[in-house]
Amino acid sequence: MGDLPEVRVNTFGVFENVGTDYGGPFYIKNKKGRGATTSKAYLCLFICMSTKAVHLELVSDLTSECFIAALNRFTSRRGKPKNIYSDNGLNYVGANRELSQVYNFLNENAAYLGNKLADENIFWHFIPANSPTFGGLWEAGIKSAKHHIKRVIGNTPLTFEEFGTFLVQIEGILNSRPLCPLTEDPEDCASLTPAHFLNGRTITSTPQHNLTDVAENRLSRWQHIQAMVQHYWQRWQKEYLGELQTRTKWRRRFDEIIKVGSMVLIKDDNVPVLEWRLGRVTELHSGADGVVRVVTVKGQFGSLKRAINRICVLPVETEI
């Protein structure tokens, strides 16, 4: 495996170097009530190459004008990037028809978009053809957003405003994910998140009733959107915690990875949206064979014991 690009490992401003990708299509309707017509809309993702912060935009069509409009909305809120990286349309020659529409747009408008952005001192970089692994950062970002959005929304068409509100809340969920501990203080359970680079603090949500178990026909339109956000949170945080626990080879004992004072994420199926249960390990409990399978974790919730398959250790800098 080659080294990561310079923009991934060196210090740059937030969204100074961004990757972009499209997802979809999704279906939106032109108005509420009866007689509404549906049309396609697409998700445009911008992801910071340094901090992994995510910005989501909803675009109504696959045209260069719509992309420039989405880019203008992005730069007005996040600042103007110096470099934009994206896939090459030729990567998806064998893709299905819907994906081909997205990436044919990128391929056909590459020259126009590159020249247009060069006038603004923004440089567009395409990864090599037939090499989607070069764009793993934005591929992972679009997967995190799109994979569960399609399953949560299903066949429910939303208006442009409703879908835009839904995407902004999804953006907040993605930017709330813990990256690493903020300090090495064993009493400090705060973690660094992409939101710290954007707002200087973590993202919190207003209190909401749990609507996931309420019948859909008893919800208003806006309650239905909040229910979809809660369903998305339940699905995505389970997937994210599962990825933190991925083990390709069982070559190291768990007590070589986790130590007293390590910050961990606790897997809990009933936490509210944008709430992560973080704690510090205070004690290791080994079995008769000397292998640690249970730990004691202390946090704002007090002290409790958890099996190691119910916690995820946040990454810290180590010496190689």
Rank of each mutant, 00 (worst) to 15 (best):
D255K: 04
S220I: 00
E319L: 13
E243W: 06
V295E: 05
A41I: 05
G13L: 08
V295P: 02
N109W: 02
T51R: 03
E108N: 14
S303D: 10
G172E: 01
S303N: 09
R151N: 14
T38W: 02
T159L: 00
N88P: 08
V291E: 14
E243S: 11
R306M: 04
R218K: 14
K146F: 02
A53S: 13
I308N: 03
T212K: 15
T282E: 13
C48E: 03
H55I: 01
A111I: 12
H147A: 02
N121Q: 12
Q101H: 06
Q226C: 10
L241G: 13
R78I: 04
E275H: 15
R277D: 09
E139G: 03
L58Q: 01
D3N: 12
S286G: 10
E319H: 10
P315S: 09
G287Y: 09
D3I: 10
Q101I: 01
A53F: 04
G164F: 10
T246P: 03
I47T: 11
N270S: 13
L62D: 06
W124V: 13
K80C: 12
V264C: 09
E275S: 11
V214W: 10
I142N: 01
A215R: 11
K249Y: 15
A195V: 10
T318E: 12
V297K: 02
T248G: 05
C44Q: 07
V229Y: 00
G200S: 12
T206W: 00
V102R: 08
Q300L: 14
F74Q: 07
V168E: 12
W222I: 10
I149E: 00
L117I: 03
V18D: 07
E162I: 05
C44I: 02
V7I: 13
N17S: 00
I266E: 11
A110M: 13
H209A: 15
A195F: 07
G261V: 04
T156I: 15
E16T: 07
C189V: 14
H224D: 04
A288C: 05
H209L: 15
R251G: 02
N309K: 14
R218E: 14
F197Q: 01
E283H: 07
L167E: 04
R201G: 07
I173A: 03
V54Y: 01
I122G: 01
T202G: 08
I68L: 15
A41G: 09
A195L: 06
G89K: 00
G33Y: 08
G242C: 12
V152T: 09
T282P: 06
V294P: 00
V316K: 09
T63G: 11
A110S: 13
F166Q: 01
K82H: 13
K40V: 05
P194I: 03
N83C: 08
V102I: 15
D87F: 06
T206L: 11
F26W: 11
V294C: 06
E57V: 05
V9S: 07
D61N: 15
V214N: 04
I308D: 02
E139H: 12
L137F: 04
V93R: 09
L167Q: 05
R97W: 06
S191E: 05
I68T: 14
N72D: 13
K238F: 02
L314T: 01
G23T: 01
F163T: 05
W138I: 08
L284S: 05
Y240N: 06
